[in-house]
Computed example of a mutant assay.
Amino acid sequence: MSDLLLTVEQAAERLGTTTRFPRRLIAERRIAFVKVGRHVRIAESALDAYIDGNTVQPIRRRRSRYGRAA
């Protein structure tokens, strides 16, 4: 297994947030993590799975043939 383990700071940088957000995800057990002694690491695949699982797809609406009423 060659999955890279990221620090909380690296995970936050990848998510574009502060370190508080990944720490909250860990505390709430919303993301898988690894404890190495007292250090916490997040597997790159777990972070990718979290991002994929929380990605919202846009709604495609059918365009009406008629414009809006005035």
Rank of each mutant, 00 (worst) to 15 (best):
D3Y: 03
S2I: 07
E44P: 06
A32R: 12
R60W: 14
I59R: 14
N54E: 05
T55M: 01
R65F: 11
T18R: 02
L5G: 02
R60L: 15
R41E: 04
I31R: 07
R23I: 01
L25N: 07
T7K: 06
D52N: 14
G67D: 14
R65W: 14
R38I: 02
R60D: 14
H39L: 13
R30H: 11
A46Q: 04
P58C: 05
G53R: 05
D52Y: 12
Q10M: 06
H39Q: 10
R14I: 09
A43G: 13
D52K: 15
D48E: 15
I51R: 07
A49M: 09
A32C: 11
I51H: 05
A32P: 11
S45C: 04
G53Q: 05
T7L: 01
E13L: 07
R30M: 09
Q57Y: 08
V40C: 08
V34H: 07
D3H: 04
E44C: 02
R61H: 14
M1S: 14
A11S: 08
I51V: 15
A12W: 07
A27K: 13
R68Y: 10
P22H: 03
A70R: 13
K35Q: 10
V36R: 00
Q57T: 11
R62W: 09
Y66V: 15
Q10C: 00
T19C: 06
D48P: 03
R68I: 11
R38N: 14
D3M: 06
L47Y: 06
G67A: 15
G37P: 01
P58R: 08
T55V: 05
T17F: 12
E9M: 06
I31S: 03
R20G: 10
A11Y: 00
R65T: 12
L5D: 00
R14K: 09
V36C: 02
V34E: 12
Y66Q: 15
G67I: 12
Y50V: 06
L25C: 10
R20S: 10
S64N: 13
E13G: 07
F33V: 09
I51G: 01
G53V: 06
L15H: 05
L6A: 01
I42N: 00
P22T: 01
R24Q: 13
F21N: 08
L25Q: 09
G53M: 06
Q10W: 00
I26G: 03
G37M: 06
R61S: 13
T7V: 01
R41A: 02
Q10P: 01
F21L: 11
F33T: 07
P58L: 08
T18N: 10
A11F: 00
A69T: 12
R29L: 03
R14T: 08
R62I: 12
R41N: 03
K35E: 13
N54P: 04
